[in-house]
């Protein structure tokens, strides 16, 4: 295979069916189908175009965070301030809207707030590189949530439903397809292409596998980190928009725990917290698996607490399974 520079890469591996079938994404597809079959048995209305799209609107609004979170985890880092960023952006949206601004301007302010929150994380983390992302975003998480509390105290801000186009963000449909779904697909496609088809994406993998080596090979590690944290903030604000559109109001305590849901979706999708591992389709599949699983279990009135136990166990087992002796067992079998 000739590349741009004219070099020929001879070590291109031949396509291996066995390896392709043992890949994590194939496993995810199997789970995905299993979940859907289970749901179809639970409810006769589930397997219809309308039913499926209704199911997606129950979890898509928070899935916008998973897209940049996949990048953050790919770098081997973590951002637990996203839930608080969602709350702060939604509060800013409500306050600026109720102060008499047009909805368009309020949306812009909301997005800017989110981006600013992300940029602050990025700024602290790039200025003080010794700091662990976990602890910085823990601090900013409390700070952003606190700012939202200062702004709104224990009140709610609302009235978003008065603006038809804003309400349609969550509730509107083009034909049978919800607008939110279309926007999500576009965003996911862009994120996926950037991760797998651009230099920027390759650089992220490089930083994730070995930040020092990446730095010495001329990658501007800190700039990329800053961009990604800002992006995470921005997409938290996007989630805030859809959440506000869906609920029609905002409070300072919304979206708590979103950071953990986003992280568990990405991790289940195979993007481990070690960095440099995983790919984007896996994360997207995991979003739909967890979303549909939750929706289906909700249909049969499985207590949400039992769901927490199931999802928690799933998360641990998924990450642990490849590390246990099972893997060695399979390898021995394959060698024979």
């Amino acid at each position: 295979m000739a590349t741009k520079s004219g070099r020929v890469i001879s070590a291109q591996k031949p396509f291996d069916w066995k390896k392709a079938l043992l890949k994590w994404e194939v496993f995810l597809v199997v789970i995905f189908i299993a979940v859907n079959i289970m749901n179809a048995f639970i409810s006769p209305y589930y397997l219809s175009v309308n039913g499926l799209f209704t199911a997606t609107s129950s979890f898509l609004e928070k899935s916008f965070i998973v897209l940049p979170m996949a990048y953050v985890l790919l770098l081997g880092e973590i951002d637990i301030s996203v839930g608080a960023t969602v709350a702060l952006s939604a509060c800013m949206l409500g306050i600026s809207f109720n102060a008499g601004m047009p909805m368009g301007a309020a949306v812009l302010i909301c997005l800017l707030t989110g981006a600013a929150c992300g940029a602050l994380n990025g700024l602290i983390l790039t200025r003080f590189q010794e700091l662990a992302p976990m602890i910085v975003t823990l601090g900013t998480q409390i700070l952003y949530r606190g700012l939202a509390e200062i702004l709104l105290e224990d009140q709610a801000t609302g009235g978003f439903t008065k603006v038809a186009w804003f309400k349609n963000l969550y509730w509107g449909k083009v034909g049978v397809v919800p607008i939110m779904f279309i926007i999500f697909v576009i965003c996911a496609a862009v994120f996926g292409v950037v991760m797998h088809g651009t230099t920027f994406g390759r650089r992220m993998y490089a930083i994730g596998s070995n930040p020092l080596a990446a730095k010495y090979s001329g990658i501007q590690v800190q700039r990329i980190r800053f961009i990604i944290y800002t992006l995470t903030g921005l997409f938290s604000a996007v989630t805030a928009l859809f959440l506000a559109s869906g609920m029609g109001s905002a409070r300072s305590n919304i979206a708590s725990g979103y950071e953990l849901e986003a992280i568990s979706m990405a991790v289940l999708g195979g993007i481990l917290t070690d960095g440099g591992k995983g790919n984007f389709p896996g994360a997207i599949l995991a979003i739909f698996i967890l979303g549909f699983l939750r929706y289906g279990l909700g249909l049969v009135n499985v207590a949400s607490q039992l769901m927490m136990v199931i999802i928690g166990l799933l998360l641990i087992v998924v990450v642990m399974a490849p590390n246990l002796n099972l893997g060695r067992f399979f390898k021995k079998k394959a060698a024979k």
Binding site: L260, S264, L306, I311, L315
Partner: peptide, 21 residues
């Protein structure tokens, strides 16, 4: 299990909270 601490305890957080209820 060689699970990163943050993931293991994230899972534990869900499991134990669910069990408490």
């Amino acid at each position: 299990g060689k699970v990163p601490p943050i993931i293991a305890t994230l899972g534990g957080m869900y499991v134990f909270r669910g069990l408490a209820y």
